[in-house]
């Protein structure tokens, strides 16, 4: 883990705006915890952990955009497709919290900003697109892959613009905002394409081998679950630890 990965650090955006976004992030996550608890069953719990670990690994891939501004993959759309919007947002924010506490990546006071951008805005944009596109596209591995690709590109760019908004509200130094917005958008289109390819390939493989694991396909399969491995036993009742 020697990759130089970095989220927004302390001191980039001023304290008031950081506090506002910390409150927004906390409120959004509270909703996700409330809605996500119902989703988190025996199949989704290990999947959520794996998705989080995968996002963690993928975020280590960093692209130098300009000297000093680097972008990285976000992973929100992958999470949305595999574990749903609520648990997906929780996965991304778990990654961000652990990166902040154990890997000194991203400032503690900027955690609210980072969570808002990547876990809330990125995931929400990804979810809306996934939900919309899957209505039109075929519910096949190929359709899901295309969906994941398009949603990734858009959600990454949207998340990067959320940073521009935060910087406009509370940036500690005056810079030309249109330049930042343009640079961030251009860079994140490229990053989004990289991310989209990874998400599409992963989702397509999972949809082909274990379609039962793809959350986004669940509601299209209400009757007769065709999962090849339905053998998830009921949780042990009252097992002695």
């Amino acid at each position: 883990m020697n990759g130089v990965a970095m989220h927004i650090a302390n001191g980039i955006v001023n304290a008031q705006v950081s506090a506002i976004f910390a409150a927004i992030a906390a409120a959004a996550l509270a909703i996700c915890v409330w809605r996500g608890r119902a989703d988190l069953d025996d199949r989704l719990a290990p999947m959520a952990g794996l998705v989080a670990a995968f996002i963690f690994a993928v975020q280590m891939l960093n692209f130098q955009v300009l000297p000093g501004v680097s972008g990285h993959l976000l992973g929100g759309t992958l999470a949305v497709v595999l574990v749903g919007p609520w648990v997906g947002a929780l996965c991304v924010s778990t990654v961000l919290i652990i990166q902040c506490l154990l890997f000194a990546d991203g400032g503690l006071t900027a955690l609210g900003l980072n969570i808002t951008n990547m876990a809330v805005v990125g995931t929400a944009a990804g979810y809306l697109l996934v939900a919309g596109l899957l209505r039109v596209l075929p519910k096949t591995p190929r359709g899901v892959a295309i969906t994941a690709f398009v949603a990734s590109v858009v959600s990454v760019v949207v998340a990067s613009q959320a940073f521009v908004l935060e910087y406009a509200l509370g940036g500690t130094t005056e810079l030309n905002l249109t330049t930042i917005a343009g640079t961030m958008a251009a860079a994140h289109v490229l990053i989004g394409i990289g991310e989209g390819l990874i998400a599409a390939v992963t989702v397509a493989t999972v949809a082909r081998v274990r379609p039962d694991l793809v959350y986004a396909l669940r509601r299209f399969r209400k009757t007769a679950s065709p999962s090849p491995k339905p053998a998830v036993p009921a949780p042990a009742v009252g097992g002695a630890a």
């Binding site: 996500g36 959520a48 794996l50 989080a52 670990a53 690994a57 996965c91 919290i97 652990i98």
Partner: peptide, 13 residues
């Protein structure tokens, strides 16, 4: 939910 996801995440890493 967080600690559960984080526990699995660190194992899966």
């Amino acid at each position: 939910v967080f600690t559960q996801i984080a526990t699995f995440m660190l194992r899966y890493l």
